[in-house]
C-alpha cells in the first residue's frame, strides 16, 4: 500500500482556557519525512496527540488520505495504520522486550479471550513473533529480546519504542522526540534508521525533535510551531534562514542539546 498523505486543517486545541494549538495547518506529502519543531511548550506533543485522537480537537480537521480522522478514537486511528512513539517513554517496564514489541502487533492479530484461552492463538503468535524478531534485528535489539524492558539502557528504550511503532506495520509513523537524550552517534544512527524504514516500509513520517542536526539531515520539510501557531514552514534550508524562526527558536542563545531531564514536563 502506498504511504498516506496527512492534512492538518486549522486544528485548534484548548485546555481549559489555555490555547495549546491555534488553527494549525500543514500537509505532509506521501512518503516524506516531516519535522515539527519549536521551543518547549510550543504545542508539538499536543499536536501529535491530536493526530492520534488522544486529545480531542476543539476545531479543525485532520485527514489521512481521504479519511477524516478528527473525531476517531485512538485505537481506531491506530487501526488505520498510524504508529507512534512517546516523548516520555511508554513501555511495560516489567515485561520482556519481546512482549513489549508483540503489543505492537495487537491490531494485526485477532486472538481474543476465548481463542487464547483455548490454545488457539499459538500459531498466529509464532508467525508474528518472527516478524517482530526481524524488526528487533533491524533496530539492533535482537540481543535484548528477553531482557526486562525496565532494565534497558536509555538508548535501548528509545529504540524499543521505535521498534514497537514499526511492529504496528504503520503507514504513517509519528515520533515524539525520537533521539532526545541520546548521544550524537546514537542520534545519527536512529535518524538513519528512520530514513531506512521510511524507504523500506513505504512510510510517511511526522516527527518532533529538538536536535537540529538530526532534523536538518533527515527532514524533507519542516513546520515551526510557537505558542501553538505555525510561524514558518518550508524546506530545511529555507527554515534555517527564516528570520522569525531564527529569533523565535534557533537563535535562542545556545539551546542545549535536549536532555531527558530538562525535557520532561511536570506530570
Amino acid at each position: 500500500m502506498s504511504p498516506p498523505r496527512l492534512a492538518v486543517e486549522e486544528v485548534s486545541l484548548a485546555f481549559s482556557g489555555l490555547l495549546a494549538l491555534d488553527e494549525v495547518c500543514f500537509t505532509v506529502e506521501p512518503g516524506t519525512v516531516h519535522a515539527v519543531i519549536g521551543p518547549n511548550g510550543a504545542g508539538k506533543s499536543s499536536l501529535l496527540n491530536t493526530l492520534c485522537g488522544i486529545y480531542p480537537v476543539t476545531g479543525g480537521r485532520i485527514l489521512l488520505d481521504e479519511h477524516e480522522v478528527t473525531r476517531l478514537r485512538t485505537d481506531r486511528i491506530a487501526a488505520l495504520g498510524v504508529g507512534r512513539t512517546f516523548q516520555n517513554i511508554v513501555v511495560s517496564p516489567q515485561e520482556s522486550v519481546l512482549d513489549n514489541l508483540m503489543v505492537g502487533r495487537h491490531r494485526l492479530t485477532s486472538a481474543g479471550l476465548v481463542a487464547t484461552a483455548l490454545w488457539l492463538g499459538r500459531r498466529e503468535q509464532r508467525r508474528h513473533e518472527e516478524r517482530v524478531r526481524e524488526i528487533a534485528h533491524f533496530v539492533g535489539l535482537s540481543a535484548r529480546l528477553d531482557s526486562t524492558a525496565g532494565l534497558l539502557a536509555y538508548g535501548d528504550l528509545k529504540r524499543l519504542e521505535f521498534a514497537r511503532a514499526l511492529c504496528l506495520e504503520p503507514r504513517l509513523l509519528i515520533l515524539d522526540e525520537p533521539v532526545a537524550g541520546l548521544n550524537a552517534a546514537e542520534s545519527w544512527e536512529l535518524g538513519q534508521l528512520v530514513l531506512t524504514a521510511r524507504k523500506a516500509l513505504d512510510l510517511t513520517v511526522v516527527f518532533v525533535e529538538h536536535d537540529m542536526g538530526v532534523v536538518m539531515s533527515i527532514a524533507d520539510r519542516i513546520t515551526v510551531l510557537d505558542f501553538g501557531r505555525v510561524v514558518a514552514e518550508g524546506l530545511p534550508a529555507e527554515v534555517r534562514r527564516d528570520p522569525i524562526v531564527v529569533s523565535a527558536y534557533l537563535g535562542a542563545p545556545d539551546r542545549p542539546e535536549a536532555t531527558p531531564q530538562a525535557e520532561r514536563t511536570p506530570q
Binding site: 488522544i54 485512538t74 517496564p93 515485561e95 512482549d99 508483540m102 503489543v103 495487537h106
Partner: peptide
C-alpha cells in the same frame, strides 16, 4: 499483553490499537 500495557499506560495501549 494488551491488559498489561493498559495497566501501565492506558493512552499508550490505545495508541497500539
Amino acid at each position: 499483553r494488551a491488559f498489561r500495557l493498559m495497566r501501565d499506560n492506558e493512552v499508550g495501549a490505545a495508541a497500539m490499537g
